[in-house]
Design a binder for these strands. Structure first.
Lengths: 346, 346
DNA sequence: TCACTTGTAGTAATCGTTTACTATAGTAAA
DNA sequence: TTTACTATAGTAAACGATTACTACAAGTGA
């Protein structure tokens, strides 16, 4: 590895002090004669000068890096979030360090530490860890944090959440409005707050309508994996269909699972939506590519990423920003997997 | 922002020199008496000491960061690659900076610069830029680079490629072996080497079998977007079906596009695979969730990420590692979207 | 002429760590 | 007793960049 050019090298070549070089190359407002300025810029260019951010940031004691911790980048939901974060970060000359916690609290803490060592100025985190002690401690030390997606039950944490409860309610309500009364809910393990909220939303809607809830919950707790979700959807559907009378509609806690539901129903020659309607959750793109196109609840993932990054940048600027807790609203994406059965006998 | 604890603070508290603190806290092999060592560790813990990597890496002139530049993280193919990279990186105490070039050469160069300023020790890049001058220049300066997915036609660049040509050939051959002779190929714009290679693979296979190729190419050049690919697949299918006699099989250059093909066929009440067979390309998970499950070509994306990171780490270690150019082999994922029409009249 | 200001450039300390040297005391060998 | 070594700890100079000071010449006004 060749030794890279530094401002000192350039200073020597130009027969000036490194202070002057620094002032020129960092676009300081400090006055430098035009002639000298141009000469230095010329030399810098010729010698392929690349500023060393380690030095700069060490001196200025501030980096232009933000950390992001999410469960898994292969989950299309989170990759959209990150995409939004990155876009805003880049526009503001920030770079992003992305870490996959894989829903492992130990890994989450490890990354938290690594990120701090790298002197990030802010953190966007979707935390699944129950023990938030390390995180809150870092916040006390002055780390700017925005919690996304997964609510953190601590004071003084700025949050951007999805309104999972309303989303669950909305989905269930929609099915009811289409005339469905026996609505089954299939869900992965109710271990995360977000999942519990959707479930509660479903429960509320059923209760409000005076209907009997019907829930099957997966017991295996796993890292996100599209195929696993799909298979779970199939299995839970089997269980659900054991109930009698059978539901006329099935609401799944995520789109991949909904695909599994549809698949299992097709396998049994049960037509969707003619015989059973299916409601998804997430609004991933492929939902509209399958048959029938999946009616689902869209969480504004990309927008959440952009918003989180913007607000984090704001926080990092001033000390006077108020605390906030944003609730992003779900949106119903009405497609073709739900049948209107109003007015039909049973 | 509170001022963080430094080794000097700890040194003062422990009444020792900062050199000693450094030696203890960085697990140096330098001998420090057991008693003192424990005292320092104790104080470090109590005062929430977090080492400042900027200082450390500046001094040691080496960071434990690698850069990754890919077209877009929302493309599930690349998010798998990154996932693999990250996994290996973490195991080796490296962190990753991911940059989405969005297939914009200017952005690619911008990121290249940013990454260099951050003093990364290595780079994994899927480059779409035609002008590789900045990249080669950085390599001359000593940057370790591994090109993935998109071949870089320069000497001295270590590569990990997919054998796109063979993949295209394999897909076409498989259709032929199932008795298909009129095989259409639908592809997005042939502007990238990888896409051209698949196309050539298709062409070779058709030529070898003495069959007439039938290609429709999209003319719009765009950033990856699942829906766009899907729509393109539909449009190109329409065009393809204008030909007479109509093809009995359609090969699409990526899975999303294949979904579009299937969708358009269904819309016209053409059964897949009964009337027309469909071959995809990529092997994304949802391919097996749709109806019919999509037969496709799998590129080992996750494995490529792991391999790239491992080899990069090796490169960064020794100066004696040989140049390499790895060709990862495609794999046929046989599912249900292709019908065997051998022995049938016509 | 003197006192000030202005424009421009240099000096040197500093950010947090590491590490080549140096220093000291205790111990062992001669 | 002298010499030599060992174990342990401190001193101070880096790494690359920034910046509060200082320096100094030329210009300005009285």
């Amino acid at each position: 590895m060749k030794k890279p050019t530094t401002i000192h090298d350039i200073a020597k070549m130009a027969n000036v002090s490194s202070a002057t070089v620094s002032r020129v190359l960092s676009n300081s407002s400090y006055p430098v004669s035009k002639e000298l300025k141009e000469r230095i810029q010329q030399i810098a260019k010729e010698s392929n000068y690349i500023p060393n951010m380690l030095g700069k940031q060490l001196k200025k004691n501030s980096s232009n890096t933000i950390g992001v911790i999410i469960p898994s980048i292969v989950n299309p939901f989170y990759s959209s979030v990150i995409f939004g974060i990155e876009e805003v970060a880049r526009q503001n000359n920030f770079t992003v360090i992305v870490c996959n916690s894989l829903q492992d609290p130990a890994l989450e803490d490890e990354y938290l530490r690594t990120i701090m060592e790298k002197q990030v100025k802010g953190l966007i985190i979707s935390s699944i860890s129950k023990d938030k002690s390390q995180l809150t401690q870092l916040m006390k030390l002055g780390l700017n944090v925005i919690a996304i997606d997964q609510k953190i039950d601590e004071d003084n944490v700025n949050q951007i959440e999805f309104d999972y409860h309303k989303a669950g309610y909305l989905a269930t309500k929609h099915l009811q409005e289409k005339g469905h009364e026996r609505i089954g809910y299939v869900t992965s393990k109710l271990d995360r707050p977000s999942r519990r909220s959707i479930h509660q939303g479903y429960m509320s809607a059923m209760k409000d309508a005076g209907l009997k809830p019907l829930v099957v919950e997966s017991q295996t707790e796993e890292v996100y994996n599209a195929i696993t979700e799909f298979d779970t959807g199939k299995q839970l559907t089997q269980k659900l269909l054991e109930h009698s009378p059978q539901p006329t509609a099935i609401f799944a806690c995520n789109d991949m699972m909904a695909f599994g539901v549809i698949n299992e129903l097709s396998r049994r020659d049960i037509q969707v939506p003619e015989q059973v309607s299916v409601m998804g959750f997430d609004g991933i793109d492929v939902g509209q590519m399958i048959h029938p196109p999946l009616t689902t609840i869209k969480q504004p993932d990309y927008e959440m990423g952009k918003m989180a990054c913007k607000m984090l940048l704001d926080m990092m600027q001033g000390d006077d920003s108020p605390m906030f807790d944003v609730m992003l609203q779900p949106k119903l994406l009405e497609r073709k997997s739900i049948r209107d059965i109003r007015g039909e006998g049973k």
